[in-house]
Structures are given as C-alpha cells and as structure tokens.
C-alpha cells in the first residue's frame, strides 16, 4: 500500500525541479502567502515555519479533515498494534489467552542472548546491505543505459519494468524453480563450475538464492525511479557538462549523480524497508515453511515464533526490538544522509 503510493508521491517533485527552471510563478504565490501567513499566525501563534513550505487553508479544521483518514489508518494499523506488542512483550502468555506470567524484560533477554536470534540479526544486516547495494547499483546501471537508448526505447523500458508487476510470492516460486535442488537449471549452471548447489540444505546456497531473487524483484522499481530522475536532468545542464568534461564517467559522477541524489536517497530508504519486510513472501516460498538451518530475516523469525510456535510474548519482544531498530535507522538516515542530499 505504502510502496504503491510511492511513484505517484514522488513524481511531482521531479517535475518541480525542472519546473522551477522555466517558470517564475513562485514569486506571485509567495506574495499572497505572506498575507495569509499573518492570518495563520493568528490561529496557530508561535512556530517559526518556513513560509515557502506553508500551505494555506481558510479554516483551521480543514487540514485536519484531510489528514484524518490517514491518521486513522496509522492509529489503527500501527499505533494500536504497537502498544499491544509492547504490552505482551512483558508476558509469557498462554496462546489462547487464559494464563500469563509477567516476566519483565525476560523475553527481551531471551531473544538477545539466543545465538539463533543473533545469527538471524547478522544475516538480516548482511542481506540488507547486499540486496540494497545490488538492486540500487544494477537499477542505476540499467537506467543509465536505457536513458541512452534511442531506438526501441519503449520496448526496452517495458521489458525492464514488467518484472515489477510480479507479486513477491510468485517471484519466489519462479526463482525456486530455477534453484530447485532436483531439477533447477541454476543448479546445473553451478555444477559447471564444480559447485554442488544445495538450496534448502546449505546455508549459503540458500542465501545466494534468496539474494538473487530479492534483487531481481527489486531492480525494476529502482530502474523506474532512476530513469525518471535521469530524464528530469535538464538538457542545458547536460550540454554545459559536455563542454566541461570529455569523460562520460566524470560527467556522470560530478553532474548527473548529485542531481540524482534525492531519488537515490528515497530509494535507499525504500530498498532497506523492502529487504527488511517485503522479502518475507520470497523467504517463505524458498524455505517452504520449514526454515531449518536456512537463513531468514528477523521479520520471518517473528512470524515463525509467533504464528507457528504460538509464543506470543517472545515474538512480541522481537517485533518491538525490530521496530526500535528500524526507527533508529530511519532517523539516522534522515539526519546524516539527507544533509548531503541536494534537492535542487
């Protein structure tokens, strides 16, 4: 849901970047905004507010009305379950809800000290870095190349993007056919190099399959954004760069890449979220509901302990840890990375 709205939410911003180049309308709106701002100040008092970022409404309730549905969704599907998760993480509970024992931080202690949990956390971090790096890198590479294609552009783009239409479980199933331990063609490919690929039995072999499928599934998404980012780089800028530098790589590094930074930053966050959470169906299909010794992500472990193992307390503690980690990660990204992003 949230990811689906991504492209639409992002698109106007790309246009805005190029839009400011051609028109000078912002000047007039700024004028009216100032008078309105005075009125808004009366309503809200205080707040230093950057006037250019203010949106004006006649009545103070209107904006709240607009955000109400979204707030309701967030409250029902995020805050409420979060509070529940935090509460039940302090108990060891009978699955049916008859008895429970307050254990304080014991569930957290059990999770953090378990070697299995640590292995899963390490794998999740590794998986995150590798999948994000590969899918961003390959997406960018393909976008740069597609940007240069003149003949047959549409076919080329459609072919690259179409993978995005495949639902993750289906992607997992398709990938699994390729990696199948009895008849998968990729197994034969690895056999040519003398490696007996045993997805489902060997930890790292399964990791290879997981990473390959997850990256494959995510490339089109990154491709679309990078391509639209590249296409919004103004022609005069490109032409000016052409005079300054002969080397294509230098032009890309010094001119194009900084202009792509907002897109890249947005994609970075989306890709990390993708690897942490949205790869769930792919993992589920590959480990076939029985993870055994195969690698999995923290989210999958939450599901496994909570839904298959019926250990509600332990699973809640794990999901709270995960929530805190992801929140911290996002804050860090915004604080340290976004500073270096130039929105143009």
């Amino acid at each position: 849901m949230t990811r689906g709205s991504g492209p639409r939410a992002r698109a106007p911003r790309c246009n805005q970047n190029s839009g400011t180049q051609v028109t000078d309308t912002p000047m007039t709106t700024l004028e009216t905004e100032r008078t309105l701002l005075a009125r808004l100040r009366a309503w809200y008092s205080a707040e230093d507010a950057n006037p250019t970022k203010r949106v004006q409404f006649d009545r103070p309730l209107t904006p709240w009305l607009f955000v109400l549905p979204q707030l309701a969704v967030v409250a029902i599907f995020f805050y409420w379950p979060s509070v529940q998760a935090v509460t039940s993480s302090f108990y060891i509970e009978d699955p049916f809800g008859f008895g429970s024992t307050f254990v304080g931080m014991e569930n957290y202690g059990d999770a953090v000290t378990s070697s299995q949990y640590r292995d899963t956390a390490l794998f999740t971090a590794f998986f995150c870095v590798v999948v994000t790096a590969l899918s961003l890198g390959l997406g960018l590479l393909l976008a740069v190349k597609a940007d240069k294609v003149i003949r047959g552009t549409e076919t080329y783009k459609t072919l690259l993007i179409s993978v995005y239409a495949i639902a993750p479980p289906v992607a997992g199933l398709m990938g699994m056919m390729f990696f199948d331990m009895h008849m998968g063609p990729i197994k034969d490919l690895f056999a040519l190099f003398g490696h007996d690929l045993r997805v489902g039995i060997d930890y790292w072999d399964t990791a290879i399959a997981l990473i390959t499928i997850s990256v494959w599934k995510q490339i089109p998404y990154n491709f679309i954004f990078f391509l639209s980012g590249l296409q919004s780089v103004p022609v005069p800028v490109r032409e000016a760069a052409l005079i300054d530098a002969r080397s294509g790589w230098r032009r890309f590094r010094d001119v194009i890449l900084p202009l792509l930074a907002p897109t890249a930053f947005f994609l970075l966050i989306i890709n990390i979220t993708y690897t942490m959470f949205d790869t769930f169906p792919i993992i589920d299909v590959i480990v076939k509901d029985k993870p055994a010794n195969n690698p999995m992500t923290l989210v999958y472990k939450v599901y496994l302990d909570g839904f298959k193992g019926n250990d509600i307390g332990g699973s809640s503690a794990q999901s709270v840890i995960l929530m805190v980690v992801v929140a911290a990660l996002t804050v860090l990204q915004f604080r340290f990375l976004e500073r270096r992003v130039h929105y143009g």
Partner: peptide, 8 residues
Amino acid sequence: FYGAGWSD
C-alpha cells in the same frame, strides 16, 4: 537427505 521440505 534433501532438507526439511516434505516433497524434496
């Protein structure tokens, strides 16, 4: 031995 999956 072909892992934990039944059908494998």
